[in-house]
Lab assay of single mutants.
Amino acid sequence: MTFKLIINGKTLKGETTTEAVDAATAEKVLKQYANDNGIDGEWTYDDATKTFTVTE
């Protein structure tokens, strides 16, 4: 399955996707991606669209 991350950061905005077997696995990968890029904020997840959003 494809999961999307929408980034609403102070210095970085955009989106990325990852392939994962489930939402929990995708969340780990996407949170690591955000952490690697210095993004720390509030996370939400929409199961209907398989989209995570992080807002700083």
Rank of each mutant, 00 (worst) to 15 (best):
N37V: 15
T16E: 06
K50D: 03
E15P: 04
F52I: 01
N37I: 13
V29C: 06
A26Q: 00
E56D: 09
L12C: 10
E27D: 04
T44R: 09
D36F: 08
W43N: 00
A20Y: 03
V54L: 12
D47Y: 11
E27R: 08
T18P: 01
K4Y: 09
W43M: 03
K28S: 11
T55H: 11
G14Y: 13
E42W: 10
Y45A: 01
F52D: 00
I7K: 02
E42M: 08
N37A: 13
G14K: 12
F52Y: 06
T53F: 05
D40L: 11
D46K: 03
V21K: 10
K13I: 13
T11Y: 14
M1G: 12
T17L: 09
T49I: 08
T18D: 02
W43I: 03
E56W: 09
D47Q: 12
T53Q: 07
T55L: 06
A24C: 07
K50M: 11
T18Y: 09
N35P: 01
A23W: 08
T16A: 12
A48M: 12
D22R: 03
F3D: 01
Y33E: 02
Y45C: 01
T51L: 04
T2E: 13
M1S: 12
K31Y: 06
T55V: 09
D40Y: 12
N35W: 14
L12S: 10
D40K: 13
I6W: 04
G38I: 04
W43D: 00
T25C: 05
A34Q: 02
T49H: 07
Q32V: 08
V21F: 14
G41S: 02
A20M: 03
T25Y: 08
F52N: 00
K10G: 13
K28R: 14
T44C: 06
N37H: 13
V21D: 11
K4V: 15
A48T: 15
T17K: 12
K28L: 11
T2D: 06
E42I: 14
D36I: 08
T55N: 10
T49P: 02
T18S: 04
L30N: 01
F3L: 01
K13N: 13
T17I: 08
A23Q: 08
N35H: 14
D36C: 05
N8Y: 10
L12T: 10
N35S: 11
T11S: 13
T55D: 07
D22Y: 03
T51E: 05
V21A: 09
Q32C: 05
K28W: 12
E27W: 13
A23F: 15
T44M: 11
T51P: 00
T49F: 05
T44L: 07
F3N: 00
